[in-house]
Design a protein around this nucleic acid. Structure first.
Length: 465
RNA sequence: GUGGAUGUAGCUCAGCUGGUUAGAGCACUGGAUUGUGAUUCCAGGGGUCGCGGGUUCAAAUCCCGUCUUCCACCCCA
């Protein structure tokens, strides 16, 4: 008699082993590229003091934070003073402020951990999910050159993930704010509201957005609305076009001019870093919801799957940790929501199917020869081949069935015939073939076969090694 | 937090206007002689029809409540 239904809470991702392998392959690719660009790993605890997590942000974040409390503390009626992190940027700020003296700046760190949000369940919305973040934190100042480095990292990662053509869309907050100032929309809060509305262009259609901006809440002049829509409609195609569009901006505003200058420098360096011009573009509607961004902002989308939306985003902020330290710590960073990305890639049929890590199953042919099979397994493992030995007596057919279902490609069969001949029969489950080799050639042969299999997988994009 | 849907086997669902022991596909377990899987054939296990109440001779089916999950808004990865 069961006492509870086995189930997970909504909004968490749980995978079967082969999918888990595919997911971890994705994380490995991300990590490899972070390291390739000179970022160093850190981890921070899932639980932080709630006053740390809640200093900066307003009501919306607080609504989504999970508070943590021991049952003892709960019974005593104490207020929870701990909470689960809801992103990796706030813990980074705390980390940098706390360890400022021991860190070297510019501090380049990557972090790939789970974060928690009290979202109401919805498609592609998770309450527990992985974020993969990189940030560069400067002391007192940080060159805009670092803003150009991140698109190179993004390009390197998504090229290697082989999920189709993509485009890193770039904008600059200074330019946006300067533009709005020139239209008489000076208040930062109001600018954000307008931007959020504009962000819904694709979703709601131009007419509805136009109506909303002219309507009660905003009450903007028709000419102003036209100017906004024309401005945010800017999308460049190729490097030269992007520069031309920057030249064409006729906004008489100091802040906007600074933004344009930054964009020009960033674009030039992105190209110098070897990112093909097909893979980056200006998009003046990119604003990013988070209000701490102050300069460059990025968002990356898949050309063939616009429905997926942004797969990677980030930007520049002027002061990371003003709540925790007096030092001025400007930074620039990006974040990949790996859990959602993986889920979306699966939905779009773009996720590779993982291959089992187990490469060989040694069949149990004869109970009396178990020590022989165990020894063979050990030899294979010492040769670097992941091997499982069949430990329970079962019909051979069942052993093959097990290998097939578990995704194990090779079954080594060592029965009385083979022992007499000094050979091993190897069944290749995937190719539905069987061959026989001398015992002493087994490891060499398997290595060749396994390597060929990996090459084939890489070519077909079926699974990362 | 606001609005709208949903709930039948592990999964996807069927079950018309209430009528005998609630079905299908997939999955699962076992079998089709001796050392060869995913295909085929045969057999089998598994459901308090989300929960509580009401109407009725009779409720998976109608009504009310409740919970759950999902969708949209908000916000975001």
């Amino acid at each position: 008699m069961t006492s509870a239904k086995a189930r997970t809470m909504p909004g968490v991702m749980e995978l079967l082993p082969l999918d888990q392998i595919a997911f971890q392959n994705m994380l490995d690719t991300v990590r490899r590229n972070f390291e390739r660009f000179g970022f160093l790993p850190i981890e921070t605890p899932a639980i932080e003091f709630s006053n740390i997590l809640l200093t900066k942000s307003g009501g919306e974040t607080e609504r989504q934070v999970y508070f943590v409390q021991s049952t003892g503390s709960l019974k005593q009626g104490d207020e929870p003073e701990l909470a689960l992190r809801f992103d990796l940027t706030v813990p980074l700020a705390r980390y940098v402020a706390e360890h400022e003296q021991q860190l070297t700046f510019p501090f380049r760190r990557y972090q790939m951990q789970r974060v928690y949000r009290g979202e109401s369940a919805q498609r592609g919305r998770y309450r527990e999910f992985y974020q993969c973040d990189i940030d560069v934190i400067g002391k007192d100042q940080l060159s805009v050159r670092f803003d150009a480095e991140l698109p190179a990292v993004i390009y390197s990662i998504f090229r290697e993930l082989e999920i189709g053509p993509f485009c890193i869309q770039i904008n600059n907050r200074k330019l946006i704010r300067g533009f709005f100032q020139s239209l008489g929309i000076a208040d930062g809060e109001r600018q954000m509201l307008v931007l959020r509305e504009v962000d819904k262009l694709d979703k709601r259609g131009e007419q509805k957005v136009r109506d909303t901006l002219r309507g009660e809440g905003f009450a903007l002049e028709p000419a102003v609305v036209d100017a906004i829509l024309a401005f945010v409609g800017t999308r460049s195609q190729g490097h030269e076009d992007a520069l031309r569009r920057l030249d064409a901006i006729a906004v008489d505003n100091e802040l906007a001019a600074a933004g344009v200058a930054e964009l020009r420098e960033v674009l030039g360096l992105v190209r110098a870093l070897g990112v093909p011009e097909t893979h980056y573009a200006l998009n003046f509607s990119i604003a990013r919801g988070l209000d701490y961004y102050t300069g460059t902002v990025y968002e990356t989308t898949l050309n063939l799957h616009p429905e997926i939306g942004s797969i990677c985003s980030g930007g520049r902020y002027e002061d990371l940790a003003s709540q925790y330290t007096r030092s001025r710590l400007p930074g620039v960073g990006i974040s990949i929501g790996a859990t959602r990305l993986f889920w979306q890639l699966q939905q779009a049929g773009l996720a590779a199917r993982g291959r089992s890590h187990v490469q060989v199953l040694v069949a149990l042919m004869d109970e009396a020869n178990l020590p022989l099979y165990l020894e063979l397994g050990t030899q294979l493992r010492l040769a670097g081949i992941n091997t499982e030995v069949q430990l329970e007596t079962r019909k051979l057919a069942r052993q093959f069935q097990y290998a097939d279902r578990a995704g194990i490609r090779f079954v080594a069969v060592l029965g009385s015939d083979e022992i007499a001949k000094g050979t091993v029969a190897v069944k290749d489950m995937r190719r539905q073939e069987q061959f026989e080799v001398k015992r002493e050639d087994l490891i060499k042969t398997l290595r060749v076969e396994i390597q060929q299999g990996e090459v084939m997988d890489a070519l077909s994009g079926q699974a990362a090694p």
